[in-house]
């Protein structure tokens, strides 16, 4: 589904991502972990094309998308959430989903009339279902800016799913959440797994990563230092050292 080969991104002299190879199969849920500053978010930005890589390629379903602009990649089925939330604050909850879904409708059926008439009935029902799944149906007419932090996190994930993506990139979805919210996130990811969607999960919360992923890749200083099943990663001495090392520095 997703393949990164020799992917590098240098900011000046800093090698934020340095020759990373990673394969994510269709329907897999893969975790990407590593200490702060190890290049996880940079990889997500490279996958969705917010900036070009210094070297290497990004392949989606076997197709090289390295030089495509972001909106085309979104049209090909990539969606993501952000570590620091980026919603359309002046739009309502429902509208936030609608604009995301509309890009999807446009992709499937670019008829001129539909663009002007807005979301047809079936699409509206789909938005309502997504809102219900994220327990946001009571907030549908609130402005996104007025939601609580936890609700905004859920709305961001709902918006990402509204476009009906085949690859979902979650950038620290549990950051700032309490135990109960993380439990709900865990359940939602498990439910999503059944729909066959592919997920790349970037997360610091190890319990969540170990519970929901099929495979985990570990980054340190921009390089991949391990890749394997959750149990295997937990036992890996190199991984332990990377994490302990970073906490010693702090």
């Amino acid at each position: 589904m997703l393949e990164l080969s020799g992917l590098s991104k240098h900011f000046g002299g800093v090698r934020a991502v340095d020759g990373v190879n990673l394969k994510v199969g269709r329907g897999d849920i893969v975790g990407l972990i590593g200490p702060n500053g190890s290049g996880k978010s940079t990889i997500v930005n490279l996958i969705c094309g917010l900036f070009p890589p210094t070297a290497g390629n990004v392949l989606l379903a076997g197709k090289d998308i390295t030089s495509l602009p972001t909106h085309i990649r979104v049209g090909m089925g990539i969606a993501r959430t952000f570590q620091n939330i980026r919603l359309f604050g002046q739009l309502s909850v429902w509208q936030n989903l609608w604009v995301a879904q509309n890009s999807d409708q446009h992709r499937k059926d670019g008829s001129f009339l539909k663009r002007w008439l807005g979301a047809p009935g079936a699409a509206r029902a789909e938005i309502d279902r997504t809102l219900e799944f994220f327990n946001l149906e009571k907030k549908r007419d609130e402005l996104a800016a007025n939601l609580s932090f936890g609700e905004q996190r859920r709305l961001e994930m709902a918006r990402a799913l509204a476009a009906n993506p085949s690859l979902l990139l979650l950038d620290e979805p549990a950051a700032g959440m309490n135990a109960e919210e993380i439990e709900q996130l865990d359940e939602r990811i498990r439910t999503l797994r059944k729909t066959g969607i592919t997920i790349l999960l970037i997360e610091h919360h190890m319990e969540l990563v170990m519970a929901v992923t099929d495979r985990v890749a570990v980054l340190n200083f921009g390089q991949k230092i391990a890749d394997g099943g959750p149990a295997e990663i937990q036992a890996n001495p190199q991984v332990r050292e990377a994490y302990l090392g970073s906490s010693n520095v702090k």
Partner: peptide, 16 residues
């Protein structure tokens, strides 16, 4: 309006 509100998020909902 989306670009005005949040440019990066606009990229990610498929706005050119």
């Amino acid at each position: 309006r989306l670009v005005t509100s949040n440019q990066i998020a606009a990229h990610l909902v498929g706005v050119n």
